[in-house]
Design a protein around this nucleic acid. Structure first.
Length: 554
RNA sequence: GGGCCUGUGGCUUAGCCUGGAUAGAGCGCCGGGCUUCUAACCCGGAUGUCGAGGGUUCGAAUCCCUCCAGGCCCGCCA
């Protein structure tokens, strides 16, 4: 509803000014929406900006489509205020389940995220991918898109060959209770150490890679077993993180089904294609100096070739293809996009995130230098349990554990999603264990407070009469929610939702502190209860989209 | 050496794409608030040459150029 208003004002402003581009943005403390068109027009019309703003305000005020919006010129600024009735009407929508969902769209979206190599457990770097991707996925569903979430399983890389080689050659003493992914990591780390000590064994790894590409049944089986063991561990971790994939797509399938050969055959006819033993593309016309190698001189394909086949398949089956990838994939991602363009196939949109490192340096699965997602979840849950037990000693243990699990997940997910992806970060235990302001639990807490009021209030008849600044500020924030969802999927920026939810909690806490709800009377009580209900509902919808449980008590 | 990303109070960070009203938060620090709807909370205060320099503009954290610092990439790895 707010989106409609925005477009109405924008269109009207365009007509009134005669300009194609009119800036209309958030008005902050001054207004609901504001425009600075008067500055630009000042030069054209050779008049003072303030005078132009005054004239525009006067002419806008006469327009029929602006009847529910107050326009005022404040100096050179054109400020738009929504009439109270609009806000009150929008607020009533906000009390209903599913608030913030946009109308269904037909554009099919495929979103790939995480896709970590199955050579060791997911660590705190990988889960930045998972959380970014899963929050985007939830946002797309909220925005009404039919969506499929995929995990691309790199099951035929050198790393997996090393794992398989390790399983064949290294004496393995089983560790009781060890998850598959941690087991694979242990073998992978040992195998790398062994290969470093005995470089002559590298040939055995190469041999495995050739056999698997040729489809040698025994080798294929070994690879599949190793990958499956690791993937079982991933599934468990992903589930704990609240992330779900609809489909696991195996890289090797694009060899077996002939797609890789087909795409390479097509490429071999392109003018950019070079074949000097190895097959590669000259993308210098697109600004890439490096050779984009697709097939080795021994005839085996490289990752890039399989990736082209995978993306061709995605592009032909979906209208919008989105990948969440680490910053280390920027070059290869740009080359992929350029090549898809040359092939006339739909290119993906790629969300890149910068690296997470440890205080002592970058993470490395091979060197065993990483903090696994499982360790992180365990430790944060343990701390959350301490916190819950200290605050709510009267609750039964199982309930405290359930709350602690939700609080821990909230802390982890929020801590990661709040930071814009282009910032590189250093993992910090202190921050991960912070449950205070600008944290996930802080937002959950606001929701729990709202639930508590509503539970005590019992039945009431909804009505909205906004009486003071705290109520107005809270209401304004609530009605922005659908536009935030819209922005997240348009700009692929999940951190906008994180910021929105935190601000909503801030405003609710201030309202909570200054305006008594249960102790107020008559219409005021009913109206405040309605506002609490709208807040509770909006917080719940926002939290759910962030993959965080909206707890009713904590 | 080349390319991409980042640089905002002691620390973490929003805003940058699309220039505009006093640069917005959290942590930490100082001072206040629990017989009152959950104090995982609220209120007030101190703390900023928006990495440096130049340019464009009526106006620059935001656009352009140069430089500095950090991260990532530049493989017949994935």
């Amino acid at each position: 509803m707010l989106c409609t208003l925005y477009h109405t004002i924008e269109t009207t402003l365009r007509e009134v000014t005669g300009q194609d581009e009119v800036f209309l943005g958030e008005g902050g403390e001054h207004a609901d929406l504001a425009s600075t068109v008067a500055f630009g027009l000042a030069k054209i019309r050779k008049k003072a900006p303030a005078e132009i703003a005054r004239e525009l305000a006067a002419s806008l005020a006469t327009r029929e489509e602006m009847r529910e919006i107050n326009v005022e010129a404040l100096g050179p600024y054109l400020n738009f205020h929504f009439r109270r009735e609009i806000i009150e009407r929008a607020l009533q929508e906000a009390t209903r389940p599913g608030y913030g969902s946009l109308s269904p769209r037909s554009e099919r979206v495929v979103l790939e995220h995480t896709s970590a190599n199955p050579n060791g457990p997911l660590h705190v770097g990988h889960i930045r991918n998972t959380i970014l991707g899963d929050t985007l996925a939830r946002s797309f569903r909220k925005a009404g898109y039919p969506l499929e979430v995929q995990y691309y399983v790199n099951d035929m890389g050198r790393q997996i060959a090393i794992v398989v080689w390790g399983f064949n050659t290294i004496a393995d003493t089983p560790v009781p209770g060890e998850k598959g992914d941690h087991h694979v990591a242990r073998i992978y780390i040992a195998a790398n150490r062994e290969l470093e000590a005995r470089p002559e064994c590298v040939a055995e790894v190469d041999r495995l890679m050739q056999l698997v590409e040729k489809g040698d049944p025994a080798t294929v089986l070994l690879f599949r077993e190793a990958v499956t063991e690791c993937l079982e561990g991933f599934r468990e971790t992903l589930q704990r993180l609240g992330a779900r994939h609809d489909r696991f797509v195996w890289e090797s399938d694009f060899i077996r089904n002939g797609d890789t050969d087909r795409v390479l055959a097509k490429i071999s006819h392109m003018p950019e294609c070079k074949n000097d033993g190895k097959l590669w593309l000259d993308l210098s016309s697109c600004g890439f100096e490096k050779e984009y190698v697709l097939r080795r001189s021994d005839g085996t394909s490289v990752y890039a070739a399989r990736d082209l086949a995978y993306h061709t398949w995605k592009g032909r089956n979906f209208d919008r293809v989105i990948d969440v990838l680490g910053a280390d994939h920027k070059l290869i991602g740009a080359q992929l996009i350029a090549t898809m363009g040359l092939l006339g196939e739909r290119a993906p949109e790629i969300v890149h995130f910068e690296f997470v490192s440890l205080p002592e340096g970058s993470m490395s699965t091979r060197a065993g230098k990483f903090v696994s997602a499982d360790e992180l979840l365990d430790e944060v849950t343990r701390r959350a349990m301490e916190e819950v037990t200290a605050r709510r000693p009267e609750l039964p243990e199982t309930e405290r554990q359930e709350i602690a699990r939700s609080v821990a997940l909230a802390a982890i997910r929020y801590d990661i999603v709040r930071i814009s992806p282009e910032k590189s970060t250093v993992f910090d235990w202190k921050e991960a264990l912070d449950f205070e302001r600008q944290s996930g639990p802080y937002i959950q807490y606001a929701h729990a407070r709202a639930c508590s009021i509503l539970e005590k209030a019992g039945e009431f008849e909804e009505c909205v009469i906004l009486e003071n600044e705290h109520e107005m500020a809270l209401a304004r924030q609530i009605i922005r929610f659908p536009m935030v969802i819209e922005s997240v999927v348009r700009e692929l920026k999940p951190h906008l939702l994180a910021g929105y939810a935190r601000e909503l909690a801030d405003l609710f806490n201030a309202f909570y502190h200054f305006e008594p709800v249960l102790k107020s009377e008559g219409l005021t009580r009913r109206s405040r209860l309605t506002l609490v209900k709208a807040t509770r509902n909006t917080l719940a919808e926002a939290l759910q989209t962030l993959g965080i449980d909206a707890l009713s008590t904590m």
